[in-house]
């Protein structure tokens, strides 16, 4: 049930993010979530899109370096301490969270989501499902 996220290498200099967003816009790629990390001289843009494989091919043709990775898009329980409860599941399962970022609320359910990159996607997924949490599929990601 994991979703493919695309990580794109970017130089840390003016115009390099514009080049990426330009290519995505030109090819009408629908971006559902984005997160940026940066160091002194380079950065990585992590994006979730409607069609990750097509997008990855386009980026390759446009001389970007990118990689597809599995991430879990999980709904946050709509209650106080909801994120805490969610993180606790990873702790109990002893699955290390490499990084995470938030996505805006779901269009129909109005619930917020978190995107997780973890050390063991399968183990985390099983435990989340066992605890009754909602993990979004690639199709459902279209609605966030």
């Amino acid at each position: 049930m994991s979703v493919k996220q695309i990580s794109v290498f970017l130089e840390n200099k003016p115009g390099s993010l514009k080049k990426l967003t330009g290519v995505l816009a030109e090819h009408k790629i629908d971006m559902r979530a984005i997160s940026m990390v940066e160091t002194r001289d380079f950065g990585i843009a992590r994006i979730v899109v409607d069609d990750p494989f097509t997008a990855a091919n386009i980026l390759k043709e446009e001389d970007f370096i990118s990689k597809l990775n599995s991430v879990l898009v999980v709904e946050i329980p709509d209650e106080t301490g909801g994120l805490d409860k969610l993180i606790n599941i990873f702790t109990e399962a002893e699955v290390n969270i490499e990084y995470m970022y938030a996505v805006s609320a779901h269009r129909t359910t109005k619930k917020a989501c978190m995107i997780f990159r973890v050390a063991d996607t399968k183990a985390a997924e099983a435990r989340l499902l066992a605890k009754g949490l909602k993990i979004l599929t690639q199709d459902e990601v279209m609605d966030i």
């Binding site: 996220q5 990580s7 290498f9 990390v37 160091t39 990585i44 370096i65 990118s66 990689k67």
Partner: peptide, 15 residues
């Protein structure tokens, strides 16, 4: 220049 082989999603590894 970064190469596809050297690139990973993990900043720590690249650094």
């Amino acid at each position: 220049e970064m190469t596809p082989e050297m690139f990973t999603d993990n900043i720590g590894e690249i650094e």
